[in-house]
Simulated scan of single mutants.
Amino acid sequence: MAADSPQLPSETAVGRVALTVTDCDRVSAFYTETVGLTVQTRDDGRVVLGDSETPLLELHADPDAPERGATETGLYHFAVRVPSRTALGAALERIERTARLDGASDHHVSEALYLTDPEGNGVEIYCDRPRTQWEEHDDGTVRMGTDRLDRAGVEGASDGASSVPVGTDIGHVHLEVADLDATRSFYADGLGMNLRASAPGACFLAAGSYHHHVGANVWHARSGPGGGRGVAWYELRVPEGALAEVRRRLSESGYDSESAEEGFVATDPAGIRVRIRPSR
Results as ranks from 00 to 15, higher is better:
residue 1 M to G: 08
residue 2 A to W: 09
residue 8 L to V: 09
residue 13 A to E: 07
residue 13 A to F: 01
residue 15 G to L: 03
residue 17 V to G: 01
residue 22 T to F: 09
residue 25 D to Y: 05
residue 35 V to L: 12
residue 36 G to V: 14
residue 39 V to M: 13
residue 40 Q to A: 08
residue 41 T to W: 12
residue 42 R to G: 14
residue 43 D to F: 09
residue 46 R to S: 15
residue 49 L to S: 03
residue 52 S to T: 07
residue 54 T to Y: 14
residue 60 H to F: 13
residue 62 D to T: 15
residue 67 E to D: 14
residue 74 G to R: 00
residue 78 F to L: 05
residue 78 F to E: 02
residue 80 V to Y: 15
residue 87 A to V: 09
residue 91 A to D: 00
residue 93 E to T: 13
residue 96 E to V: 01
residue 97 R to A: 14
residue 98 T to S: 15
residue 98 T to N: 07
residue 99 A to Q: 09
residue 99 A to H: 08
residue 100 R to W: 06
residue 102 D to P: 05
residue 104 A to Y: 05
residue 112 A to V: 06
residue 115 L to T: 00
residue 117 D to L: 12
residue 118 P to W: 02
residue 119 E to M: 10
residue 123 V to N: 00
residue 126 Y to S: 04
residue 126 Y to R: 00
residue 127 C to K: 03
residue 127 C to L: 09
residue 133 Q to D: 10
residue 134 W to R: 11
residue 149 L to K: 07
residue 158 S to N: 12
residue 158 S to L: 03
residue 159 D to Y: 04
residue 160 G to Y: 06
residue 161 A to C: 03
residue 162 S to H: 06
residue 165 P to I: 05
residue 166 V to S: 06
residue 167 G to Y: 02
residue 172 H to C: 02
residue 178 A to M: 08
residue 181 D to R: 08
residue 182 A to G: 15
residue 183 T to M: 11
residue 185 S to T: 15
residue 190 G to E: 14
residue 195 L to R: 00
residue 198 S to Y: 07
residue 198 S to L: 07
residue 198 S to P: 07
residue 202 A to L: 14
residue 204 F to T: 00
residue 205 L to G: 00
residue 205 L to R: 08
residue 206 A to K: 06
residue 207 A to M: 10
residue 210 Y to E: 04
residue 217 N to P: 03
residue 219 W to C: 00
residue 226 G to L: 14
residue 226 G to T: 01
residue 231 V to F: 04
residue 234 Y to D: 03
residue 236 L to Q: 10
residue 242 A to H: 10
residue 244 A to M: 09
residue 251 S to T: 05
residue 254 G to M: 01
residue 259 S to Q: 15
residue 260 A to E: 10
residue 266 A to R: 13
residue 267 T to R: 14
residue 268 D to N: 10
residue 271 G to R: 04
residue 271 G to T: 00
residue 274 V to L: 09
residue 276 I to V: 13
residue 277 R to V: 13
